[in-house]
Simulated scan of single mutants.
Amino acid sequence: MTFSLVARCAKTGMFGVAISSSSPAVAARCAYARAGVGAVASQNVTDPTLGPLALDMMAGGMGADQAVAEVRRRGAFIEYRQVLVVDGSGQTGIHSGPNSLGIWTQAQGPDVASGGNLLANDCVPQAIVDGFLASSGHLGDRLIAALRAGLAAGGEAGPVHSAGLMLVDQVPWPVADLRCDWTEGCPIEAVARAWEVYKPQLDAYVQRALDPRAAPSYGVPGDD
């Protein structure tokens, strides 16, 4: 009931996850990323411990494939899980358990991995990877383009209701963590609209955290 991608920007070293699902609040349970380390999507009958586990393994020096192997070794009921990983060199690894739901498949490319379950067809992850590789610009823009490509290729077998976008870069917190936890409309477009608003302010929010004396004003009431 989910399709997603994890990706790295080869120019900046930024990592990101974009995800959508028919389930509510999918990004709250399935998206994980750590600056300087990598990004993980843990989905399909989700075990939220697997994302941090994979990131810890990569922080300790493992590559994506090694981290996925460790997830397989340590994970409970791993035959039900789907885990996508990208590491600091842009290498990717994927585990899709044989008990993943419905039509499930996966795809990989340089700096990007995609997977899904309960899909409308088995072309969706490859369409996501192709959409990412064909895009340019900010990693957030590329993640949105890729998720839209997956939806255009069929997406889930049924309607999606939640989506999320997470980005990490240089600081130990997500520089963007945008979510639509439930809508009867298109959650991907809801997140895309939020990204359009947030993107011009991203650097300023980081600056406010690091040194508010140098932070710009946005003219909100009381901010003079």
Rank of each mutant, 00 (worst) to 15 (best):
D111C: 12
T105K: 07
P125R: 09
S114R: 12
D87S: 10
G102D: 02
T105V: 03
T92Q: 04
L118G: 01
D122F: 02
L84Q: 13
T92P: 04
C123L: 14
S114D: 01
G115S: 11
P98N: 11
V112M: 06
V124W: 03
D111W: 05
A107H: 04
C123I: 06
N99F: 11
L119C: 06
V83T: 13
G90V: 12
T92G: 04
P125S: 08
Q91E: 09
G115W: 04
G88E: 06
A107W: 02
Q82N: 06
G90W: 02
Q106A: 15
G102C: 10
G90K: 09
L101V: 14
L118T: 13
P98T: 12
G88S: 15
D122G: 13
Q108F: 00
A107E: 01
G115T: 09
N121Q: 08
G109I: 08
T92E: 00
A107I: 05
T105S: 14
G97Q: 05
S89M: 09
G90A: 03
G93H: 14
T105Q: 04
P110R: 14
D111H: 12
Q126L: 13
N99L: 15
G93I: 10
L119W: 02
G90F: 03
D87T: 12
T105E: 01
G116N: 05
G97C: 08
V85A: 02
P125W: 03
V85I: 15
G109Y: 00
G109S: 07
D87I: 10
D87E: 09
S114E: 00
V112Q: 03
S96K: 13
Q91M: 11
P98D: 12
D111Y: 07
L119S: 08
G115L: 09
G115Q: 08
P110V: 11
V112L: 06
S89G: 15
V112D: 00
N121I: 12
G116V: 07
V83Q: 04
P98L: 11
L84P: 01
G115Y: 00
V112W: 00
D87R: 10
Q91S: 14
Q82F: 01
Q108S: 14
V124N: 04
G88N: 14
C123H: 12
I103F: 05
G109R: 07
Q126E: 14
